[in-house]
Simulated assay, not measured.
Amino acid sequence: MKAIRVTALTGPDDVELAEVERPVPGPGQVLIKVAYAGVTFPELLQTRGLYQVKHDLPFTLGSEASGVVAEAGPDSRYSIGDRVAAITGSGTFAEYLVAGDEATVPVPDSVSLADAAGMPMNVLTADFALRVRANAQPGQSLLVHGAAGGLGSAAVQMGLAMGLEVIAVVSTDAKAEAVRELGATHVVFANGFKDATKEIFANGVDFVFDPVGGDRFTDSTRVLAPFGRLLVLGFTAGEIPSIKVNRLLLKNISVDGVAWGAAAFGHPTYITEQWETVREHVAAGRLNPRIHATYPLERTAAAIRELDERTVMGKVLLEVAGE
């Protein structure tokens, strides 16, 4: 079968389309004929050896995918023909993928396999951040940095589904239009977001969702209301910020780390339980990603470069077998 392989940690331009042996599912596993694979920021980092999870070279790239069960191993709860999505951390940029039942979720008939491929990591990360780490409640306010990106747009949609008032922070007019299409309550620009947010919420917001980091971090603490929480999800700006903790003390605010992978992969039933929690929103189409672009498998390098160039508005997919 064809697969995208990383043979050197020299960046996305050097990934290779190669022929590899088709995997065989073991007990409690399924072989998935991949329809689409989602492209995530960790893939960009993995091509450079910069992600916290390391794989021995060479390895097949890709963290999430959707498709149809082609073969079910002994004791698997899935059957041939089931429509599924999977989160495996590697191996999804391929024609076939083996995934454990614990990393596989059913896709409702109302959801396309293209949309399903763009959901797993972003939707479950957003759910973990807002429901589990923040304990967000209907009527509260949420500011989302990088709101037009894959993870940010999932946070916008999840916040709206949970009944939050959402401020989307973007950098361009085109991205502003994209998040308005998602239903964001308010849209502000990254340049001057602090003052713009204070005009909307004079006392500040309850939560800041930040996958960006960098130089906007300090102003994120300044837009929090008393008892507010800054949710740290990553550093796509490249710089890991620091903070003087007296700011936390004086305003009764907190900075919370959100490492969904560390929580999920330490608990075998976690992904299934989370998916069950968000299933109603998924089936109703409230969390369908905005598809920015779809590339064939052989153009994986170009797909990953889009993330590197910060031009993505929504989700980038690889089409493998299609619907």
Rank of each mutant, 00 (worst) to 15 (best):
N122E: 12
N135H: 14
V223R: 00
N122A: 15
F189Q: 07
G139A: 13
V144Y: 12
M162R: 12
L113Q: 06
V205Y: 11
G214K: 01
A134M: 10
T185C: 06
L160T: 00
A126K: 01
V223I: 15
V223M: 12
L164V: 07
A116N: 07
Q157F: 08
M119I: 02
D195L: 11
D215R: 09
A161D: 08
P226G: 05
R180C: 05
F189S: 09
A126H: 05
M162H: 11
F217R: 00
A155W: 01
V166N: 11
Q157V: 06
T218E: 15
A148Q: 13
V123Q: 00
M119N: 04
F189P: 02
V111Q: 06
E165G: 11
A190M: 09
L151H: 04
M121S: 08
V156M: 08
V205L: 12
G146H: 07
R133N: 07
A196V: 01
G213K: 02
R180P: 04
Q157S: 13
V144K: 12
N122C: 13
V156G: 12
A117D: 02
G159H: 02
E181Q: 15
L151I: 08
L142C: 13
P120Q: 05
G214V: 01
G149M: 10
D215Q: 13
G149Q: 04
A126S: 15
G204L: 02
G149L: 10
G192F: 09
D210E: 02
P211Q: 05
G150I: 05
D195M: 10
V170E: 11
S141A: 13
L143I: 13
L130D: 07
V156S: 07
D115V: 02
P138N: 13
V144D: 12
V123I: 13
K194N: 07
M158E: 03
G163W: 12
E165Y: 09
Q157L: 14
A154K: 04
N191M: 09
A116H: 06
F193R: 05
Q140V: 06
V187Q: 00
V156H: 01
Q137Y: 12
D195R: 14
D173Y: 05
L124S: 02
R222E: 15
I200Q: 10
P211C: 04
D115F: 12
A154C: 13
N135T: 01
V132N: 11
A225G: 10
F217T: 00
A126Y: 02
R131V: 10
P120N: 02
L113V: 01
Q157W: 05
N135A: 15
A117G: 04
M162K: 11
H186F: 14
A116M: 06
H186W: 09
S171G: 15
L130S: 08
R131C: 10
A202S: 15
L160G: 04
D215A: 06
M119K: 02
E181A: 12
I167P: 03
L224G: 01
G159W: 03
S141K: 06
